[in-house]
Design a binder for these strands. Structure first.
Lengths: 205, 205
DNA sequence: AATTTGATAGTTTTGTTAAAAAAGTCAGGA
DNA sequence: TCCTGACTTTTTTAACAAAACTATCAAATT
């Protein structure tokens, strides 16, 4: 209907795409608004016409990525044949999500406290979707009498997700830098998580 | 035999005790050698007569604490009636260890990279003892045919310990500061870990 | 000879300031 | 309504001096 809005949305998308590339390669703090504007051959002021500030721009990109991830989870919700399949799907999808956007999240390594508080809404949203997916799967198995009844599926899933995040590399020689994992370690961590799934799912039977 | 050495050891112990109190209350970086010397009514130079530098002094205190903890684990090694008891003992003992020395470890929160590398030897030693305790318990249960055989008990224990460390607070509202837990959260975390034990041990049956 | 200290040297942390870089604003043009 | 150049404000960086602290050592004490 509103051509003007369509045009706006297209340009907004272009900005998001260019910003994503910059953030993915250089991270938040090493990306300047001038560079993004330069990539698009537009003035920096125009960026501020479409987005209130740098943080909100970053957040908008982040929300787009999150929505893709959320969609993957929602599409599968309730379509699992057993518990193990559900847990495997969650862990694999999450792994792919992190691997393909690894550098985009590099601000997590530093103490970048200057990011907007609204980022935690998105993080919560993602965690909520993950919890829902797995808690539903547990509930379904309980109703099918495949596993014994549990008092609080959500509590169990929260412990499981926390446990997943605890999996690190370097068993015998703990690393000094205990910040989030290096890219080359992601596969090793992924494999350990698969082992955790084996035991955990069996423990719910 | 050597009275001189006995006297040295006594004084060394006194220094360790005074240092422990300071480190426990104020942490590594907020404790000065002058203050420790003042507490003992001795000159700062004398501290350097007994310990080569501040890092080594801190490490000596740390080793003393670690030895107490290791002793608790070793005393119980191989004296468990079932797997659950072993895992519970490990988690409870660890919890008590952290709670009673909480402020001593506060340098972990900051990026205190200026601590001696030898600290990681002690950390490794502790982790090694934890792994041994639990892996032995698993092995014993396997031999008693209480649980099914496992290919690699150590690998399983490592995943378990990592999972334990991943347990955090604030399921719905993730905290900005994702550093190590606040003192008031330790009990909540402890309870979640007990839940993890329930499921994990059952998964090994 | 072993133990202890005051004085002092060397290093790290902290605070200050100026310059540079980047974020963010705005009056006005198309 | 969309867009820009010029401008203001805020943040980062670098340089440097002052303060605090670590570490050393010759000399004194036991």
């Amino acid at each position: 209907m509103n051509t003007s809005n369509d045009q706006q949305d297209i340009k907004r998308e272009k900005i998001l795409e260019a910003s994503y590339q910059r953030f993915l390669h250089y991270g938040y703090s090493k990306t300047t608004m001038n560079e993004i504007a330069g990539d698009l051959s537009m003035s920096k002021a125009l960026l501020y016409y479409y987005f209130p500030d740098k943080s909100e721009l970053y957040m908008a990109v982040m929300r787009k990525l999150a929505n893709d991830y959320l969609k993957q989870l929602e599409d599968k919700l309730g379509h699992f044949t057993d518990l193990r399949e559900a847990f495997l799907f969650q862990v694999n999808t999450h792994h792919d999500f992190i691997v393909s956007n690894y550098n985009f999240f590099d601000f997590f390594r530093l103490n970048e406290q200057n990011l907007p508080d609204t980022i935690w809404e998105t993080v919560s949203q993602i965690r909520g979707a993950e919890i829902k997916l797995l808690a539903d799967a547990i509930q379904a198995e309980v109703e099918k009498n495949n596993i014994q009844p549990v008092a609080n599926p959500i509590e169990i899933v929260e412990v499981f997700l926390d446990a997943l995040h605890g999996i690190k590399v370097g068993g015998s020689l703990p690393h000094k830098k205990l910040n989030f994992p290096h890219k080359e370690h992601l596969d090793e961590i992924h494999n350990k998580r698969l082992l955790l799934i084996d035991i955990f799912v069996k423990g719910l039977k």
